[in-house]
Design a protein around this nucleic acid. Structure first.
Lengths: 140, 140, 140, 140
DNA sequence: GTGGTCTAGACCACC
DNA sequence: GTGGTCTAGACCACT
């Protein structure tokens, strides 16, 4: 779990950390139940202030990706949001729309856009599989 | 071309305007060559400070979506980015990856994610078609 | 709207501010639509660091008591939580239970406890009335 | 006497234990003179560090709810605070006020709030009765 | 003017 | 050891 940050970027450092942790979880580099590196550890590794990491971890907690036990550390909890289905689908549609529009303005064709997504989904396939197995067929 | 803005959102007002104009262009509500509503008009309609709209228009100009003729107004120029192909594909891949990860954390399945995208692309199909016709068959 | 803070208290300063703003709203000293004093103003008045006030305001925002417009300030929004009824009742019951237990351990009788509550509710009566009027009989 | 703890809660684990013991006493699950489960027992049952339980018991002793006999265990002593009447009433009023304000922000009506309290008091009625009998009619 | 981000560093609470 | 609170002060983004 190695976090790298670009302090010159316009996207806030804490948001970069949030994004990287979410990617790591989705990519299976961090598994549910596993501890995240401690605040200070991450702060040193990423060469940022511990407060900044704290803010990122707080944000991850409100998003339901991790859970923090005071005095012990932060644990990956994620196995899908527990939001209502209707909210999830609406949100998904919103993100899809945004992605499609960005693709359009990049000059890509619908086919190119769809292929790019397939490629991204394939890269995450193992995580989807193991999660969905845990959810839908717990009888194994 | 009606612009609505949520001042309490964490995404800056000017960025909301940028995003809405880009959506309008991608959706064909604003066509290349057409004038945007004037800065002042937009400011009143959206109940925001004219400076904020000015910033949004400036940003759109930087992104190559519109062109501003001093004293006359702003015209839609966009018909796809003129960035290099390799940059476009890399950027597209980055966006796709991000979309896939967000979908994962929302608890959606790969199929649901792909379907959401198809649905969004279909909604924009007319724009893609007319643009691609203009691009690929200039022999007309 | 005067905020006072006891830095020696075991309850965090930011939580003291949250509590005082909520009391002020419930008491009608701050009315929906009104601006809160700015971060810096409050920080100076309460003799605390602006960051501490910022944390309090952020917390009030997540609780739905205020709404913050970037660059403009924070506005009182509260006219009752928009949580689901079942959640509200469960939460209310939890708080009531806690209050009753505390009363027991203070050595108070059930009658004393009920009277103390009536007294507190009476003090807030005008606020309840105006809110409920706005909600239930908007035909006036 | 079964203690359950949520390590991810923002209220400290030791405070959760304190609160639960107080509830148990108020609810009559633990009666004056009775022994609490041993420190170690509780630690194992609640899956927490024995030091944490020790801190909770120390706090309960300070509050006058239990008494610890070295080497023998902890006994419930509580049958109401021995604070002065004026302090008790002031404290009660403070708690009532806080409860009323929280109820207001939850969107509840005064009637709903009062009813929630009655319901909570009724659940504790047997304890109040037996305690008050012991206090007010020691002539038996 | 407003609030937001980040840093540096002290001190505390919890386990 | 862990995370949480608070301060001081710089700098930025938004309106």
């Amino acid at each position: 779990m190695l976090i790298k940050v670009d302090p010159a970027s316009s996207v806030p450092v804490y948001a970069q950390i949030v994004s990287q942790v979410k990617h790591a979880v989705a990519a299976g580099l961090l598994r549910p139940g596993e501890y995240l590196p401690s605040l200070r550890e991450t702060a040193i590794a990423a060469r940022v202030n511990p407060n900044t990491v704290a803010k990122a971890y707080r944000e991850l907690e409100t998003q339901g990706v991790i859970r923090t036990d005071h005095g012990r550390g932060s644990i990956v909890t994620d196995s899908g949001s527990d939001a209502t289905t209707s909210y999830r689908l609406a949100e998904l549609r919103r993100l899809a729309d945004q992605f499609a529009v960005e693709g359009y303005h990049l000059g890509a064709s619908p086919a190119e856009i769809a292929i790019a997504l397939q490629s991204a989904l394939n890269a995450l396939k193992p995580q989807f599989d193991s999660r969905d197995a845990g959810k839908e067929t717990p009888h194994e």
